[in-house]
Amino acid sequence: MFWRETYIVFRRQLRMALRNPAWVIIGLVQPILYLVLFGPLLEPIAGQLGAQNAYTLFVPGLLVQLGLFGALFAGFGLIAEWRAGVIEAERVTPASRTALLLGRILRDVLQLFVQGIVLIGLAFLFGLTGSILGMVFGLILTVLLGAACAAASNALALTTKSEDVMAPVLNSIALPVLLLSGILLPMTIGPQWLQVVSDFMPTKYIVNAIRELFTGDFFTITTMWGVIWTIVLFAAGLYVGTRTFRKENA
């Protein structure tokens, strides 16, 4: 029953996304632009950054960026749906509230997954080398992080019910996270104080873990922390999301 309801919601979301793929395409074009226009700048200095291949350094960062930003803004669609009365109409059915959330998150997760595969595939053309299995694990971590962000974003959307409140909140979160996670450049090249500040950013550990996974280092402390943080964020995101969806007057 629960999975059927989740599937109905997921299918509806996917159908609408595919019918108007502008956002899917925009979401895909951005990391590709980074790859094409920024990647070559990293190639000559990859060695200085402690990497043999510029793209094993850069692609994990782009993956996390995709996971964070694509999903963080997922809530905007929910506000539009709420305004159109769709959420209320769904909540008056006997369907599980968690299914209403999960179906939506799965759409975002699928989108992220496809974007990630396209990104990695393209990066091979640019000269990415590394462990395929590591890349698969890296993509899984990305998808879990994306699910957490999508859930949190949906929860925020349903709580604020206003794009005007959402946009500044998300932007004020997104930029420091982007800068302090070492997405474009590893934090290790920064001064001491910047490194200390970035130590408080869970996503930094995830980016670092995906970098190690890409090079084939599965069982390191860095990877372990990345996995732990991903699971913690995933659990927290889903908890906040389902709690908001279950709340009676949300």
């Binding site: 609408m16 159109a84 209320e88 109409a89």
Partner: peptide
């Protein structure tokens, strides 16, 4: 209760693009 009732809210029930 949900199974037995129909509810037509003020704000509509469908996405404009669906």
């Amino acid at each position: 209760v949900r199974r037995s009732i129909g509810y037509v809210s003020q704000s509509g029930s469908t996405s404009p693009e669906a």
